[in-house]
Design a protein around this nucleic acid. Sequence first.
DNA 1: TGCATAAGCAGAATTTTATTCTGTCGATTT
DNA 2: AAATCGACAGAATAAAATTCTGCTTATGCA
Lengths: 156, 156
Amino acid sequence: MEFNLDNIDLAILEKMQANARISNADLARELSMAPSAILERVKKLEQKDVIRRYTTAINPAAIQQKLLAFIFLRSSEGFTCCSDTAAQLAAIPEVQEVHHIAGEDCYLVKVRTTDASSLMSLMRSKMQKIPNIASTKTTIVLETVKEQPDLVIPKT
Amino acid sequence: MEFNLDNIDLAILEKMQANARISNADLARELSMAPSAILERVKKLEQKDVIRRYTTAINPAAIQQKLLAFIFLRSSEGFTCCSDTAAQLAAIPEVQEVHHIAGEDCYLVKVRTTDASSLMSLMRSKMQKIPNIASTKTTIVLETVKEQPDLVIPKT
DNA sequence: TGCATAAGCAGAATTTTATTCTGTCGATTT
DNA sequence: AAATCGACAGAATAAAATTCTGCTTATGCA
């Protein structure tokens, strides 16, 4: 289950985090190693689930996703046992993140929609229909100052 | 400034969002087009800032980032004009996102640290030293159910 | 301690890609 | 109608990915 990352692994992660499409050859050059050795490591990192996926950050405005909001949900599931409220939220495409947070059955949900009205209709048509949702509190983002999917790579 | 995306562009975005390291040749095959044509489009998407960056999603636990928290900050900048509070927050490596939200000078900040104590010391050492920060309210994430940097690609 | 095994790497060979260039076709402009 | 532009295919070339072989050094184990 565990997996120890050495400095070379960390350097690879750092460079790939900054640019997932860096060529293996470039990686090898920058780290002064053979491409075959780097490839071996990258594949191992993928296999060990250190690397989860490679993704492309798209400008939300370019695809009409101009509104970003965070929604706090309170679920009223008395004894409904661990309902799948979270799973139902996660199934909504516009929902980007679902976090279970401290506090009585609370979720923090990040949503992107075209505009305010589409958020409203989304909430009415999908979110409110999920059982056990007692209350919601929505926070609209006016401006995003920083948005980095980057993690802090420990530099040993 | 504007840029119209046709169905081919959207298909490209969708596939690259799912896997930023897909080869241009594969893309071309899947869309039944010549690699040169696809390459042209991808470069244009990059240039037009539709594609922002290619990034690698790393398992946070693998690099000792086990704690995720959202912090609400209230800035008390009376007439300090638009201070650079946000910029100072953004400069902290552990801070992943900074959003300016509705409400009197409020920010929503997403932070990842090793554990609770490191979050505490981070707040004491860095965040509290930022001028004009009046109050903070921290929400600890117990479990992340969904975490997709994916945007909903409109399917015309 | 000493042998056996496995991990990590370099280097070369081979298969695929990326990239560039040229020319076609159709739509738009003038 | 001629000129121009955009989008694309196809071919040629440069570069990269991938695989394989062995070498070297840890690591394990008897």
